[in-house]
């Protein structure tokens, strides 16, 4: 039987305009990784979040995985499936179009669902 593991890396996370990175996660045992993103709230004139999967050999030096990034603009669920990611994983987010007063553009949950 395969192993499966769901790791909550952002829970009820309030994200304002700007860049962020999720905490590094080691997933070398897994054949596949699926980032599941739940957008609970979206605010502002044109809320937008681009989420890229990033990979690393050592957990310190990161670059983009070849998978196409997630483009997020409204509430709902989003999935970013990955294979051939090696061991270290994180997500890089770029948020824009939020409220002018700097209050959160999005409230999100992010999980890694790992299987292998």
């Amino acid at each position: 039987m395969k192993n499966v593991h769901t790791a909550p890396v952002e829970v009820l996370s309030a994200r304002s305009d700007g860049a962020f990175f999720t905490e590094p996660h080691e997933a070398g045992w897994a054949d596949e990784a699926l980032a599941m993103v739940y957008v609970r709230e979206a605010a502002g004139p044109l809320p937008s979040m681009v989420l890229r999967a990033q990979i690393s050999a050592d957990g310190a030096r990161w670059f983009d995985h070849p998978a196409a990034p997630l483009q997020i603009g409204k509430t709902g669920g989003y999935g970013l499936p990955l294979t051939h990611f090696g061991n270290w994983l994180r997500l890089a987010g770029e948020v824009s179009g939020g409220p002018a007063n700097g209050s959160p553009t999005f409230v999100i949950d992010i999980y890694w669902i790992l299987k292998g």
Binding site: H5, A7, P8, V9, E10, V11, L12, S13, A14, F20, T22, E23, H25, E26, A27, G28, W29, A57, D58, G59, A60, R61, N87, W88
Partner: peptide, 29 residues
């Protein structure tokens, strides 16, 4: 309550820039 970014337990292969994978005491993880 740990809202926002979370640090959570995970299976590690103890991998770093210099030696690569050190592995665990009795295996990989």
């Amino acid at each position: 309550l740990p809202f926002g970014p979370r640090a959570v337990p995970m299976l590690s292969s103890l991998t770093s820039w210099d030696v690569g994978t050190a592995g665990s005491l009795s295996g990989t993880y």
